[in-house]
Amino acid sequence: MKLKYEFVTNEVAGKTVAVAVGDSLEAFGGYIKLNETGAFIFSLLKNEISREEIVNAVRGEYEVEKERAEEKVDEFLAYLASFGVI
């Protein structure tokens, strides 16, 4: 999977904020607020990547159990899917 749109991100008011740019701005006009883990996963999704690869990357980055990492990843992917961006 991969982000459908092109985004730029930056810290605003203590959260990472992603806004769509280029032609993506018209297709997805809003912004998405990301927590720390979310921002990490979001950055991975700029390139094609599988759920398993994301889970492994999260385990490596945050040293968490596989189950916990899967839970976090699924929760975040559902959040992104609710915006229609993956």
């Binding site: 092109e6 730029v8 991100t9 930056n10 810290e11 605003v12 008011a13 904020v17 806004v19 740019v21 280029g22 032609d23 701005l25 912004y31």
Partner: peptide, 16 residues
Amino acid sequence: MPKNPQSAAKTLELLE
């Protein structure tokens, strides 16, 4: 919010 990626990133910096 600009379409241009550099301008958009800079806008977020300026908003902060």
